[in-house]
Structures are given as C-alpha cells and as structure tokens.
C-alpha cells in the first residue's frame, strides 16, 4: 500500500517536472512548482517525517510560490527563448542524476533497524528525550535542546538572509518614501 502511494506520488512529481520543463508560461511554472512542493510534502508524510512535510508545505508551496509570484509581478510572464541548445545541460543532468541513483544503491533499506543511524545516536535520543526533557516529540527536543547550537546557527542564517534581502531591495524605495527609508536606517 505504502509503496503504491509512493509510486503514485513520484509519478505525479515526474509529470509535474516534465510540465515545468515544457511550459514557457512562467505563471504556470510557478503554480506547478507549488504543486511539486505539495507532492513532496505528501511523500514526506508517507515517510513519517511530518515535521519536514509541514516545513515543505509552508515554505516550498506557500512562501516560495508567493515570492515567485512577486518576482513575476516585476518581470515578464513569458519565458525567453533559449539561445543555446539544451544538449550540454542535458548531458550534465543525466550524469549527475545517474551518480545520485548510483549513490542510493549503497544506502540501507528504508526503516531497517540495525543500520548505523538507527543504532547509535538516534536510538539514544529516542531513549533520553522524555526522561531528560519531558518532550515526547523527539524532533523538537533534538532541534531545540540537544542540537540547540545548530538551530541557533539556522536562526542566524535566516536573520542574515532577511537582513541581506532588506539591504538589497528595501533601499530602492528610498527616494520615493523618505520616511520609511530612514526608519530602515534605524533598524539596520
């Protein structure tokens, strides 16, 4: 049953990808990319990774789509005709894809209990999370407590990205709106 659902979702993802490649209308491409993210989120749910699925659905399908639409508002909706033949990118993509598939051949089967990642650290966290932190969702306890320093780094990355985008884009409106430009100076 699970395999059938996965196959269906992956087939749909392949179809959506082909649609993204073939279409020249960027609006349709953005919507298809959002659909792709939702399908990816569904795959994550089938794999029991609900936290990742939620992030994929909200960031990949939600915010990214909105930001892409915002970009489309600033630029043209129709994709320009390519000036080069797609043969070289095709070869690169095929080689990289083949390398990735070759890499997956060595990975252990999904959900197998006696693999490296399921025996040492992972099992340790599963055992320790509730007695030590009282948090049943191990993803949260690992993210915010055991690996809290990593998450601080991630938050800082988000912070840096936000400040960077604001520095690049928010400045452009300064001549038009003096007041908000000055407020921006105070904040940054």
């Amino acid at each position: 049953m699970e395999a059938a659902i996965n196959m269906g979702l992956l087939t749909l993802m392949a179809i959506v990808t082909l649609g993204i490649i073939r279409l020249r209308n960027l609006f349709a491409v953005v919507i298809l990319a959002g659909i792709y993210s939702f399908l990816m989120a569904s795959v994550m749910i089938v794999l029991d990774a609900v936290d990742v699925a939620m992030t994929e659905a909200s960031v990949g399908a939600g915010i990214s789509t909105v930001l892409m639409l915002g970009v489309l508002y600033l630029t043209k909706v129709e994709e320009a005709q390519p000036t080069h033949t797609p043969i070289l990118p095709l070869i690169v993509a095929v080689i990289v894809g083949a390398a990735l598939v070759y890499g997956t051949l060595d990975t252990p089967p999904f959900g197998q209990a006696d693999t490296v990642m399921n025996t040492y650290v992972g099992a340790d966290y599963l055992k320790r999370s509730v007695p030590e932190t009282g948090i049943p969702n191990v993803v949260t306890s690992v993210l915010a407590s055991y690996r809290g320093f990593d998450t601080l780094g991630e938050t800082t990355v988000v912070f840096a990205a936000g400040i960077g985008v604001l520095l690049l884009l928010a400045r452009a409106k300064k001549p038009k709106r003096r007041k908000q430009g000055e407020e921006g100076d105070d904040a940054s």
Binding site: V66, V158, A170, K173
Partner: peptide, 19 residues
C-alpha cells in the same frame, strides 16, 4: 519571531518595489 518577520520582510521588500 525571526522566521516570521524575515518572511514578511522579504515579501514587503519584493512587493513594495512596484513595477
């Protein structure tokens, strides 16, 4: 606090540029 404001800030920056 950081994630919500960053997402909103990026959206404001994009949408506020006008055509």
């Amino acid at each position: 606090v950081t994630v919500s404001s960053t997402m909103l800030g990026i959206f404001y920056a994009f949408a506020g540029r006008g055509r």
